[in-house]
Amino acid sequence: MNQKILSIDDSKTIRLLLARMFRPFQVELREAGNGEEGLAQAKEVRPDLIILDYNMPVMDGVTMLQHLRHDPQLKSIPVIMLTAESNPKVISTVARLGVRDYVVKPFQEQALITKVSKVIPLHPQGTVSSNLPS
């Protein structure tokens, strides 16, 4: 079964970039343009991982993360931050909210794939994936 990743970023460019990066893997990528849309998508899709921007209109990444952590149905979804913001206050705030990793833009694509693969299994397209023990 495909892993579900929810990409929340106001930049279509980043959403397209992530779509290109994860195309070789058995991943179903969903998108949202801000934190509010992201919360709605998270409730609907129940993703295995959220890749979250910080600076967004309507609802920023930290506010979205706070809502996520207060929702019993969604609070355990792992989150990786992907943002140009490297302010230590922001980093310590999201660390307290339990993000799994923090990636600062610009970023090495392979480094992000490696970080994602530590959170969810990434199987290349065309291979048989199974959760059953061998």
């Binding site: 930049s11 460019t13 600076n55 140009a84 913001e85 833009k105 610009p106």
Partner: peptide, 12 residues
Amino acid sequence: GELCNMLAGRVS
């Protein structure tokens, strides 16, 4: 805009 965002992040 996204490229400027990355540049600004690096400068920051």
